[in-house]
Write a protein that binds this DNA or RNA. Structure first.
Lengths: 97, 97, 97, 97
DNA sequence: CCGTAATTAACAAAAC
DNA sequence: GTTTTGTTAATTACGG
Protein backbone atom coordinates (compact mmCIF):
# COMPACT_ATOMS: atom_id res chain seq x y z
CA UNK A 1 0.00 0.00 0.00
CA UNK A 2 2.47 2.60 1.22
CA UNK A 3 6.15 3.00 0.56
CA UNK A 4 8.29 1.50 3.21
CA UNK A 5 11.45 3.59 3.56
CA UNK A 6 13.03 0.87 5.62
CA UNK A 7 13.95 -2.36 3.91
CA UNK A 8 13.84 -4.98 6.58
CA UNK A 9 16.26 -7.67 7.58
CA UNK A 10 14.02 -9.59 9.88
CA UNK A 11 10.35 -9.97 9.31
CA UNK A 12 8.73 -7.24 11.29
CA UNK A 13 12.02 -5.45 11.67
CA UNK A 14 12.44 -2.38 9.50
CA UNK A 15 15.95 -1.60 10.57
CA UNK A 16 18.43 -3.11 8.20
CA UNK A 17 18.96 -5.42 5.24
CA UNK A 18 16.76 -7.27 2.81
CA UNK A 19 14.58 -10.06 4.21
CA UNK A 20 16.58 -11.89 6.82
CA UNK A 21 18.47 -13.90 4.22
CA UNK A 22 20.12 -16.23 6.66
CA UNK A 23 16.97 -17.33 8.37
CA UNK A 24 15.21 -17.68 5.08
CA UNK A 25 18.06 -19.73 3.69
CA UNK A 26 17.99 -21.94 6.74
CA UNK A 27 14.28 -22.60 6.33
CA UNK A 28 14.68 -23.35 2.65
CA UNK A 29 17.51 -25.77 3.27
CA UNK A 30 15.61 -27.62 5.95
CA UNK A 31 12.69 -27.96 3.60
CA UNK A 32 14.91 -29.15 0.81
CA UNK A 33 16.46 -31.79 3.00
CA UNK A 34 13.10 -33.15 4.04
CA UNK A 35 11.91 -33.03 0.46
CA UNK A 36 14.89 -35.08 -0.63
CA UNK A 37 14.10 -37.71 1.96
CA UNK A 38 10.54 -37.82 0.77
CA UNK A 39 11.71 -38.30 -2.81
CA UNK A 40 14.02 -41.11 -1.78
CA UNK A 41 11.24 -42.89 0.07
CA UNK A 42 8.88 -42.43 -2.83
CA UNK A 43 11.44 -44.07 -5.06
CA UNK A 44 11.75 -46.90 -2.56
CA UNK A 45 8.04 -47.42 -2.65
CA UNK A 46 8.04 -47.54 -6.44
CA UNK A 47 10.73 -50.20 -6.26
CA UNK A 48 8.65 -52.30 -3.93
CA UNK A 49 5.73 -52.07 -6.32
CA UNK A 50 8.01 -53.07 -9.17
CA UNK A 51 9.31 -56.03 -7.20
CA UNK A 52 5.79 -57.16 -6.38
CA UNK A 53 4.81 -56.82 -9.99
CA UNK A 54 7.87 -58.83 -11.05
CA UNK A 55 6.82 -61.66 -8.75
CA UNK A 56 3.42 -61.72 -10.40
CA UNK A 57 1.15 -59.51 -8.35
CA UNK A 58 -1.25 -57.06 -9.91
CA UNK A 59 -0.32 -53.59 -8.72
CA UNK A 60 -3.77 -52.25 -9.42
CA UNK A 61 -5.28 -54.76 -7.03
CA UNK A 62 -2.55 -54.01 -4.53
CA UNK A 63 -3.33 -50.32 -4.67
CA UNK A 64 -6.99 -51.09 -4.12
CA UNK A 65 -6.15 -53.18 -1.09
CA UNK A 66 -3.90 -50.49 0.31
CA UNK A 67 -6.65 -47.97 -0.13
CA UNK A 68 -9.13 -50.18 1.74
CA UNK A 69 -6.69 -50.69 4.58
CA UNK A 70 -5.96 -46.99 4.74
CA UNK A 71 -9.67 -46.29 4.89
CA UNK A 72 -10.01 -48.73 7.76
CA UNK A 73 -7.33 -46.89 9.68
CA UNK A 74 -8.79 -43.49 8.92
CA UNK A 75 -12.17 -44.73 10.04
CA UNK A 76 -10.74 -45.93 13.33
CA UNK A 77 -8.95 -42.64 13.84
CA UNK A 78 -12.14 -40.76 13.23
CA UNK A 79 -14.08 -42.97 15.58
CA UNK A 80 -11.50 -42.44 18.29
CA UNK A 81 -11.81 -38.71 17.75
CA UNK A 82 -15.57 -39.06 18.08
CA UNK A 83 -15.18 -40.91 21.35
CA UNK A 84 -13.01 -38.15 22.70
CA UNK A 85 -15.51 -35.59 21.49
CA UNK A 86 -18.30 -37.35 23.34
CA UNK A 87 -16.18 -37.66 26.45
CA UNK A 88 -15.45 -33.96 26.35
CA UNK A 89 -19.10 -33.15 25.83
CA UNK A 90 -19.95 -35.17 28.91
CA UNK A 91 -17.29 -33.42 30.93
CA UNK A 92 -15.21 -36.57 31.07
CA UNK A 93 -12.47 -35.50 28.70
CA UNK A 94 -9.92 -36.37 31.33
CA UNK A 95 -10.54 -40.08 31.03
CA UNK A 96 -8.02 -40.08 28.18
CA UNK A 97 -5.37 -38.35 30.21
CA UNK B 1 12.04 -62.76 3.09
CA UNK B 2 10.61 -65.94 4.57
CA UNK B 3 10.14 -69.35 3.04
CA UNK B 4 6.75 -70.08 1.70
CA UNK B 5 5.81 -73.57 2.85
CA UNK B 6 3.14 -73.73 0.23
CA UNK B 7 4.80 -73.48 -3.18
CA UNK B 8 1.55 -73.93 -5.04
CA UNK B 9 0.09 -70.62 -3.96
CA UNK B 10 2.18 -68.60 -6.32
CA UNK B 11 1.15 -65.29 -7.79
CA UNK B 12 -0.56 -65.61 -11.11
CA UNK B 13 -1.81 -69.00 -10.19
CA UNK B 14 -5.40 -68.70 -9.03
CA UNK B 15 -6.08 -72.40 -9.27
CA UNK B 16 -4.94 -73.32 -5.79
CA UNK B 17 -5.00 -71.04 -2.78
CA UNK B 18 -6.07 -67.43 -2.91
CA UNK B 19 -3.24 -65.19 -4.07
CA UNK B 20 -0.14 -66.07 -2.09
CA UNK B 21 -1.47 -64.22 0.93
CA UNK B 22 1.71 -64.17 2.93
CA UNK B 23 3.88 -62.68 0.27
CA UNK B 24 1.22 -60.21 -0.64
CA UNK B 25 0.82 -59.20 2.95
CA UNK B 26 4.55 -58.70 3.25
CA UNK B 27 4.59 -56.41 0.24
CA UNK B 28 1.65 -54.44 1.51
CA UNK B 29 3.20 -53.97 4.90
CA UNK B 30 6.50 -52.82 3.46
CA UNK B 31 4.65 -50.31 1.36
CA UNK B 32 2.60 -49.14 4.30
CA UNK B 33 5.70 -48.64 6.39
CA UNK B 34 7.34 -46.52 3.73
CA UNK B 35 4.14 -44.62 3.22
CA UNK B 36 3.96 -43.84 6.91
CA UNK B 37 7.48 -42.47 6.84
CA UNK B 38 6.55 -40.31 3.88
CA UNK B 39 3.54 -39.02 5.75
CA UNK B 40 5.63 -38.19 8.78
CA UNK B 41 8.13 -36.28 6.69
CA UNK B 42 5.39 -34.44 4.88
CA UNK B 43 4.02 -33.39 8.24
CA UNK B 44 7.49 -32.25 9.26
CA UNK B 45 7.73 -30.14 6.15
CA UNK B 46 4.37 -28.57 6.88
CA UNK B 47 5.61 -27.71 10.34
CA UNK B 48 8.67 -26.01 8.93
CA UNK B 49 6.48 -23.95 6.63
CA UNK B 50 4.28 -23.05 9.55
CA UNK B 51 7.27 -22.03 11.61
CA UNK B 52 8.58 -19.85 8.79
CA UNK B 53 5.16 -18.30 8.40
CA UNK B 54 5.01 -17.64 12.12
CA UNK B 55 8.30 -15.77 11.97
CA UNK B 56 6.89 -13.58 9.25
CA UNK B 57 7.87 -15.14 5.93
CA UNK B 58 5.48 -15.52 3.06
CA UNK B 59 5.10 -19.19 2.26
CA UNK B 60 3.98 -18.54 -1.26
CA UNK B 61 7.19 -16.69 -2.00
CA UNK B 62 9.13 -19.46 -0.29
CA UNK B 63 7.53 -22.03 -2.53
CA UNK B 64 8.46 -19.99 -5.57
CA UNK B 65 12.05 -19.80 -4.38
CA UNK B 66 12.18 -23.52 -3.74
CA UNK B 67 10.97 -24.16 -7.24
CA UNK B 68 13.66 -21.91 -8.69
CA UNK B 69 16.35 -23.58 -6.62
CA UNK B 70 15.13 -27.00 -7.68
CA UNK B 71 15.36 -25.91 -11.30
CA UNK B 72 18.87 -24.63 -10.76
CA UNK B 73 19.83 -27.88 -9.18
CA UNK B 74 18.35 -29.94 -11.97
CA UNK B 75 20.16 -27.80 -14.48
CA UNK B 76 23.46 -28.27 -12.71
CA UNK B 77 22.89 -32.00 -12.65
CA UNK B 78 22.24 -32.00 -16.33
CA UNK B 79 25.28 -29.92 -17.09
CA UNK B 80 27.43 -32.16 -14.96
CA UNK B 81 26.10 -35.20 -16.77
CA UNK B 82 26.85 -33.55 -20.06
CA UNK B 83 30.39 -32.75 -18.97
CA UNK B 84 30.92 -36.31 -17.91
CA UNK B 85 29.58 -37.54 -21.22
CA UNK B 86 32.02 -35.38 -23.11
CA UNK B 87 34.90 -36.37 -20.85
CA UNK B 88 34.09 -40.04 -21.40
CA UNK B 89 33.93 -39.49 -25.16
CA UNK B 90 37.41 -38.03 -24.98
CA UNK B 91 38.71 -40.92 -22.93
CA UNK B 92 39.04 -38.68 -19.92
CA UNK B 93 36.24 -40.06 -17.84
CA UNK B 94 38.64 -40.64 -14.99
CA UNK B 95 39.08 -36.95 -14.32
CA UNK B 96 35.94 -37.10 -12.23
CA UNK B 97 37.29 -39.89 -10.09
CA UNK C 1 -2.15 -32.37 -32.88
CA UNK C 2 -0.34 -31.02 -35.94
CA UNK C 3 -1.33 -28.53 -38.59
CA UNK C 4 -4.98 -27.72 -38.96
CA UNK C 5 -5.69 -27.32 -42.69
CA UNK C 6 -8.99 -25.68 -41.94
CA UNK C 7 -8.48 -22.14 -40.62
CA UNK C 8 -11.83 -21.51 -39.00
CA UNK C 9 -12.44 -19.08 -36.20
CA UNK C 10 -12.03 -21.77 -33.63
CA UNK C 11 -10.53 -21.36 -30.20
CA UNK C 12 -6.81 -21.33 -30.53
CA UNK C 13 -7.09 -19.37 -33.73
CA UNK C 14 -6.65 -15.70 -33.03
CA UNK C 15 -6.23 -14.69 -36.63
CA UNK C 16 -9.84 -13.80 -37.35
CA UNK C 17 -12.27 -12.83 -34.64
CA UNK C 18 -11.37 -12.60 -30.97
CA UNK C 19 -11.75 -15.99 -29.31
CA UNK C 20 -15.11 -17.33 -30.37
CA UNK C 21 -16.91 -14.87 -28.09
CA UNK C 22 -20.34 -16.37 -28.38
CA UNK C 23 -19.34 -19.85 -27.42
CA UNK C 24 -17.22 -18.57 -24.64
CA UNK C 25 -20.04 -16.45 -23.33
CA UNK C 26 -22.37 -19.42 -23.44
CA UNK C 27 -19.97 -21.53 -21.42
CA UNK C 28 -19.47 -18.80 -18.87
CA UNK C 29 -23.17 -18.29 -18.43
CA UNK C 30 -23.84 -21.97 -17.98
CA UNK C 31 -21.14 -22.09 -15.35
CA UNK C 32 -22.50 -19.04 -13.62
CA UNK C 33 -25.95 -20.53 -13.46
CA UNK C 34 -24.71 -23.74 -11.91
CA UNK C 35 -22.52 -21.78 -9.52
CA UNK C 36 -25.50 -19.79 -8.36
CA UNK C 37 -27.41 -22.95 -7.62
CA UNK C 38 -24.45 -24.27 -5.66
CA UNK C 39 -24.29 -21.06 -3.66
CA UNK C 40 -27.97 -21.25 -2.88
CA UNK C 41 -27.67 -24.81 -1.66
CA UNK C 42 -24.62 -23.98 0.39
CA UNK C 43 -26.60 -21.22 2.05
CA UNK C 44 -29.41 -23.71 2.71
CA UNK C 45 -26.97 -26.04 4.37
CA UNK C 46 -25.62 -23.27 6.55
CA UNK C 47 -29.16 -22.50 7.60
CA UNK C 48 -29.74 -26.08 8.60
CA UNK C 49 -26.60 -26.03 10.69
CA UNK C 50 -27.73 -22.79 12.29
CA UNK C 51 -31.13 -24.26 13.04
CA UNK C 52 -29.58 -27.33 14.61
CA UNK C 53 -27.29 -25.16 16.66
CA UNK C 54 -30.26 -23.06 17.78
CA UNK C 55 -32.05 -26.18 19.01
CA UNK C 56 -29.03 -27.06 21.09
CA UNK C 57 -26.86 -29.35 18.99
CA UNK C 58 -23.14 -28.94 18.74
CA UNK C 59 -22.20 -28.32 15.14
CA UNK C 60 -18.70 -29.60 15.66
CA UNK C 61 -20.03 -32.95 16.77
CA UNK C 62 -22.48 -32.93 13.90
CA UNK C 63 -19.69 -32.38 11.44
CA UNK C 64 -17.76 -35.25 12.97
CA UNK C 65 -20.77 -37.51 12.60
CA UNK C 66 -21.29 -36.48 9.02
CA UNK C 67 -17.69 -37.26 8.30
CA UNK C 68 -18.02 -40.70 9.83
CA UNK C 69 -21.13 -41.43 7.81
CA UNK C 70 -19.45 -40.23 4.63
CA UNK C 71 -16.52 -42.50 5.37
CA UNK C 72 -18.86 -45.41 5.80
CA UNK C 73 -20.33 -44.78 2.40
CA UNK C 74 -16.95 -44.35 0.77
CA UNK C 75 -15.79 -47.55 2.38
CA UNK C 76 -18.75 -49.44 0.98
CA UNK C 77 -18.13 -48.01 -2.46
CA UNK C 78 -14.51 -49.04 -2.32
CA UNK C 79 -15.38 -52.52 -1.16
CA UNK C 80 -17.81 -52.90 -4.00
CA UNK C 81 -15.08 -51.84 -6.39
CA UNK C 82 -12.80 -54.44 -4.84
CA UNK C 83 -15.40 -57.12 -5.32
CA UNK C 84 -15.65 -56.22 -8.95
CA UNK C 85 -11.88 -56.26 -9.24
CA UNK C 86 -11.72 -59.76 -7.81
CA UNK C 87 -14.51 -60.91 -10.05
CA UNK C 88 -12.68 -59.56 -13.08
CA UNK C 89 -9.45 -61.21 -11.98
CA UNK C 90 -11.26 -64.54 -11.77
CA UNK C 91 -12.77 -64.08 -15.20
CA UNK C 92 -16.22 -63.59 -13.74
CA UNK C 93 -16.55 -59.91 -14.35
CA UNK C 94 -19.82 -60.51 -16.13
CA UNK C 95 -21.63 -61.45 -12.97
CA UNK C 96 -22.25 -57.76 -12.41
CA UNK C 97 -23.69 -57.31 -15.86
CA UNK D 1 -37.92 -41.27 11.28
CA UNK D 2 -40.25 -41.99 14.21
CA UNK D 3 -41.68 -39.83 16.92
CA UNK D 4 -39.67 -39.66 20.06
CA UNK D 5 -41.91 -40.70 22.95
CA UNK D 6 -39.41 -39.35 25.39
CA UNK D 7 -39.70 -35.57 25.41
CA UNK D 8 -37.03 -35.25 28.07
CA UNK D 9 -34.25 -36.17 25.71
CA UNK D 10 -33.80 -32.66 24.45
CA UNK D 11 -30.55 -31.31 23.13
CA UNK D 12 -28.42 -29.78 25.83
CA UNK D 13 -29.88 -32.11 28.38
CA UNK D 14 -27.57 -35.04 28.86
CA UNK D 15 -29.22 -36.19 32.03
CA UNK D 16 -31.73 -38.48 30.40
CA UNK D 17 -31.37 -40.22 27.07
CA UNK D 18 -28.52 -39.79 24.64
CA UNK D 19 -28.78 -36.66 22.49
CA UNK D 20 -32.25 -36.53 20.96
CA UNK D 21 -31.26 -39.07 18.32
CA UNK D 22 -34.24 -38.63 16.08
CA UNK D 23 -33.96 -34.92 15.71
CA UNK D 24 -30.26 -35.19 15.23
CA UNK D 25 -30.74 -37.83 12.59
CA UNK D 26 -33.24 -35.64 10.80
CA UNK D 27 -30.80 -32.76 10.70
CA UNK D 28 -28.00 -34.97 9.48
CA UNK D 29 -30.11 -36.40 6.73
CA UNK D 30 -31.27 -33.01 5.56
CA UNK D 31 -27.67 -31.89 5.42
CA UNK D 32 -26.63 -34.99 3.55
CA UNK D 33 -29.33 -34.49 0.99
CA UNK D 34 -28.30 -30.92 0.33
CA UNK D 35 -24.66 -31.97 0.20
CA UNK D 36 -25.45 -34.57 -2.40
CA UNK D 37 -27.16 -31.99 -4.55
CA UNK D 38 -24.15 -29.73 -4.20
CA UNK D 39 -21.88 -32.55 -5.26
CA UNK D 40 -24.00 -33.28 -8.30
CA UNK D 41 -23.94 -29.65 -9.37
CA UNK D 42 -20.23 -29.43 -8.79
CA UNK D 43 -19.78 -32.43 -11.04
CA UNK D 44 -21.95 -30.72 -13.64
CA UNK D 45 -19.76 -27.65 -13.50
CA UNK D 46 -16.65 -29.73 -13.93
CA UNK D 47 -18.20 -31.28 -16.99
CA UNK D 48 -18.89 -27.88 -18.46
CA UNK D 49 -15.30 -26.87 -17.88
CA UNK D 50 -14.14 -30.09 -19.48
CA UNK D 51 -16.36 -29.48 -22.46
CA UNK D 52 -15.03 -25.95 -22.87
CA UNK D 53 -11.50 -27.22 -22.60
CA UNK D 54 -12.22 -29.88 -25.21
CA UNK D 55 -13.39 -27.22 -27.63
CA UNK D 56 -10.12 -25.39 -27.14
CA UNK D 57 -10.69 -22.84 -24.39
CA UNK D 58 -8.24 -22.25 -21.61
CA UNK D 59 -9.93 -22.99 -18.33
CA UNK D 60 -7.53 -20.87 -16.35
CA UNK D 61 -8.45 -17.83 -18.42
CA UNK D 62 -12.11 -18.76 -18.10
CA UNK D 63 -11.80 -18.84 -14.33
CA UNK D 64 -10.19 -15.41 -14.35
CA UNK D 65 -13.05 -14.08 -16.46
CA UNK D 66 -15.63 -15.60 -14.15
CA UNK D 67 -13.99 -13.93 -11.21
CA UNK D 68 -14.06 -10.56 -12.94
CA UNK D 69 -17.69 -10.99 -13.87
CA UNK D 70 -18.56 -11.95 -10.33
CA UNK D 71 -16.86 -8.82 -9.08
CA UNK D 72 -18.77 -6.71 -11.55
CA UNK D 73 -21.98 -8.30 -10.45
CA UNK D 74 -21.23 -7.78 -6.78
CA UNK D 75 -20.40 -4.17 -7.47
CA UNK D 76 -23.67 -3.61 -9.29
CA UNK D 77 -25.54 -5.18 -6.43
CA UNK D 78 -23.83 -2.90 -4.00
CA UNK D 79 -24.53 0.17 -6.08
CA UNK D 80 -28.16 -0.78 -6.41
CA UNK D 81 -28.41 -1.25 -2.67
CA UNK D 82 -26.85 2.14 -2.15
CA UNK D 83 -29.30 3.74 -4.54
CA UNK D 84 -32.18 2.15 -2.74
CA UNK D 85 -30.82 3.32 0.56
CA UNK D 86 -30.65 6.90 -0.65
CA UNK D 87 -34.10 6.70 -2.17
CA UNK D 88 -35.49 5.40 1.10
CA UNK D 89 -33.78 8.18 2.99
CA UNK D 90 -35.47 10.68 0.71
CA UNK D 91 -38.82 9.06 1.22
CA UNK D 92 -38.82 7.80 -2.33
CA UNK D 93 -38.35 4.14 -1.63
CA UNK D 94 -41.41 3.33 -3.66
CA UNK D 95 -39.76 4.27 -6.92
CA UNK D 96 -38.29 0.79 -7.05
CA UNK D 97 -41.61 -0.89 -6.60
C1' DC E 1 -11.50 -10.36 10.85
C1' DC E 2 -8.29 -13.94 11.09
C1' DG E 3 -6.64 -18.27 11.15
C1' DT E 4 -7.71 -22.87 10.34
C1' DA E 5 -9.75 -26.57 8.01
C1' DA E 6 -11.98 -28.71 4.05
C1' DT E 7 -12.88 -28.74 -1.05
C1' DT E 8 -11.52 -28.35 -5.58
C1' DA E 9 -8.68 -27.60 -9.54
C1' DA E 10 -3.87 -27.74 -11.66
C1' DC E 11 0.14 -30.19 -12.18
C1' DA E 12 3.09 -34.13 -12.32
C1' DA E 13 4.02 -39.01 -12.40
C1' DA E 14 3.34 -43.58 -13.60
C1' DA E 15 0.73 -47.36 -15.31
C1' DC E 16 -0.72 -49.96 -19.38
C1' DG F 1 0.79 -42.26 -26.21
C1' DT F 2 -2.83 -41.59 -23.37
C1' DT F 3 -5.08 -42.06 -19.63
C1' DT F 4 -5.52 -42.69 -15.01
C1' DT F 5 -3.62 -41.73 -10.35
C1' DG F 6 -1.25 -39.10 -6.88
C1' DT F 7 0.48 -34.82 -5.25
C1' DT F 8 0.51 -29.94 -4.71
C1' DA F 9 -1.54 -25.41 -4.78
C1' DA F 10 -5.41 -22.33 -4.18
C1' DT F 11 -9.97 -21.18 -3.23
C1' DT F 12 -13.59 -21.22 -0.15
C1' DA F 13 -16.23 -21.85 4.20
C1' DC F 14 -16.47 -22.20 9.04
C1' DG F 15 -15.56 -21.02 14.00
C1' DG F 16 -13.55 -18.19 17.32
Amino acid sequence: MTDDPNPRAVPGDNSSQAVAPDRLRAFLERIERVTEEISALTADRSEIFAEAKATGFDTKAMRALLKLRAQDHAQRQEEAAMLRLYADALGMGDIFG
